[in-house]
Amino acid sequence: MNDWLKVCPLEDIPRLGAKVVSTDKADIAVFRNAEDEVFAVDDRCPHKGGQLSQGIVFDRRVSCPLHGMTVHLDSGKAQAPDEGCTHKYRVRVDKGVVFLNLG
């Protein structure tokens, strides 16, 4: 079964930025960091649901635009000492195109 869905060319996501992917279930934030690694998590901050996609991206982390909580993109977990977790999705880049797995 092939669950990998095409999102967009990697270029469409700015370095240290994100793209919102709306699905019928949830909005997903797909991030690209300085090393061109991509990450995908639910676009909802574990704190009060802020849109992580709108935050400042650094390293492998994002800082939520609403109250500044830092979320680790590779795990979806809030940075200690904060607690909480946002759902993480599998994502990959193939020949310059980003694919997302909702499974």
Partner: peptide, 15 residues
Amino acid sequence: GEFKAVKLFAKDSVS
């Protein structure tokens, strides 16, 4: 690009 989201629907959805 900043203002447009990508629309994507899971395989079992009609659209």
